[in-house]
Amino acid sequence: MTDEFRPSRRTAGRRVPEVRCRTAAPPGAAAPAGPAVASGIRAIGEPEAGLDVATARVSGDTAVVVVNGEIDLRTADILRARLVELHAAGPRRLVADFTAVPFCDAAGLGALVAAHNQIAATGGEIVLAGVRPAQLRLLRITGLQRLFAVHADVPGALTALDSPTASG
């Protein structure tokens, strides 16, 4: 009897790629209304694209940008484009508040680097605030903590950005 269960246990221990389904509609068809959303295909209150990047406030040449949602292959380009767009609108420095980012993968890190490269080319800067421990670990492993100043929270980031200006 135990031999019957061994293959099942081995299969149960294997890691299977996670598949996320946004809608049950076939390609090209309209997404179902109401019940599909309420049934858990898309979390209630989740931004349509899965990521929201919005300016919270602008003070002088610094803008605080709140990032809300998961940053992955599906949403990384939204992050990059929005950061570059916000910088082009005027603020030289962007403080990206990651407090509401539960997950950021390699695609998200790549989007941050791409945004940094575009923004730095025109004299701008991206500073990260509220980065979760797991994401901070990824920044350290990849060496990106040398590219981005990382602060515990937005007030700390703003204070650090203001201190060199006040002294010089």
Rank of each mutant, 00 (worst) to 15 (best):
R20Q: 14
G40T: 04
V53N: 05
L158E: 00
V154P: 07
L139A: 03
A121I: 05
R9F: 11
V84Y: 06
G123W: 08
P133E: 10
T55F: 13
A121V: 04
V131A: 10
T23F: 14
H151V: 03
Q135N: 10
A33F: 04
P91H: 03
H151W: 01
V19R: 06
C21T: 14
V66G: 11
V67D: 02
L112E: 04
P133N: 07
L128G: 09
L144Y: 08
L147G: 01
P32N: 09
L112T: 00
G34Q: 12
G60C: 03
L51M: 11
T23P: 14
P155V: 01
V150I: 11
C21V: 15
V84K: 03
A157E: 00
L144Q: 01
G34L: 14
P17W: 01
G156K: 01
A121K: 04
A25V: 04
E70N: 09
I78P: 08
R93H: 12
A24S: 15
V101R: 03
V66P: 11
V65E: 02
P133R: 08
L147E: 05
G69D: 13
A115S: 10
P164C: 04
N68T: 11
A29Y: 09
V67C: 07
V150C: 11
P91E: 01
A120Q: 05
P27S: 06
V58Q: 08
V16E: 09
F148S: 02
V154H: 04
C104W: 06
G90N: 10
I126H: 04
R137S: 08
V65A: 05
V150A: 05
R74S: 12
Q135L: 13
L144D: 01
I126G: 02
F98D: 00
T159N: 10
E125H: 10
D52L: 15
R22H: 07
Q118A: 07
I141M: 10
A149N: 00
F98S: 03
V64I: 12
L147W: 13
R132Q: 09
V58G: 08
L144F: 15
D153T: 07
A43P: 13
A149C: 02
H87S: 05
M1I: 12
G60F: 04
E18F: 12
D97H: 10
L161M: 06
V127W: 05
D52Q: 15
A115M: 09
R132P: 00
R22W: 14
P47V: 03
R6H: 15
P155G: 02
L79N: 02
T165A: 12
A152G: 11
A107H: 12
I141S: 01
A12M: 12
G69V: 13
S39F: 03
R140E: 14
P17R: 10
A81K: 14
A25N: 06
S59C: 10
F103V: 00
E70M: 08
A56C: 10
I71S: 02
A25H: 07
V101A: 06
V101C: 08
